[in-house]
């Protein structure tokens, strides 16, 4: 959908588009490594940093301008935190359960900031493409927060439990992508109306 409407995409939507491309490629690399029986948990550190970078950049365009520099600063601080965490704290074969939830909480905060801003808009909720994208991000990050926190416990769980939890996670992820698709679709209709 995003590719089809690429020429209509606004800057924030292009960020989300490239985030999706990155996310897809990263998962592909992950799958290949798993196929070669490599541990991939430490790769999640890189993913966390880049995910935070993309989503912060996205919200920096949507939220009030005066917070933009603070958001850029947050990206730098979070990246440093992730590096420190990877090198000195969670450096074994384990997930980064300290940094990923922190990143998610910050993004959830940005998302809520956006919602509070949006409450005063004189527009139908559904017509605004950013609302759909924001809902997708908020839904995924908030719902998966518990999973991010307890993911290291899940490593020791049985296959059955893991399957249930990952299936739940994947369902929410699909929902997020569906909401993204609606956002990208709305982008085109939005542009068509504005050219009148």
């Amino acid at each position: 959908m995003a590719l089809k409407n690429y020429r209509f995409l606004t800057k924030p939507l292009k960020i989300i588009f490239w985030f999706l491309i990155f996310s897809g490629s990263f998962n592909l690399v992950n799958l290949i490594l798993i196929a070669f029986h490599q541990y991939t948990a430490h790769l999640l550190n890189i993913y966390t940093v880049i995910e935070f970078f993309f989503l912060s950049l996205y919200y920096s365009y949507l939220n009030v301008k005066k917070y933009r520099n603070l958001m850029y600063m947050a990206i730098v601080i979070f990246t440093i935190l992730c590096i420190v965490n990877y090198l000195f704290v969670q450096n074994k074969i384990e997930f980064n359960t300290y940094t990923r939830p922190v990143g998610a909480i910050v993004i959830i905060f940005y998302s809520l900031m956006y919602v509070s801003q949006q409450n005063n808009e004189e527009q139908n909720w559904g017509d605004n493409m950013y609302n759909w994208i924001n809902t997708g991000i908020l839904l995924y990050l908030a719902s998966s927060l518990f999973m991010f926190i307890f993911i290291n416990y899940l490593l020791n769980a049985g296959q059955h439990i893991n399957r249930i939890l990952w299936a739940t996670h994947d369902t929410i992820l699909i929902l997020e992508y569906l909401l993204f698709a609606v956002g990208f679709y709305k982008c085109k209709t939005h542009q068509t109306i504005s050219t009148y």
């Binding site: 518990f146 416990y153 439990i161 996670h169």
Partner: peptide, 8 residues
């Protein structure tokens, strides 16, 4: 695990 699922 159930707690995580419930939380989610």
């Amino acid at each position: 695990y159930i707690l995580v699922l419930l939380g989610m």
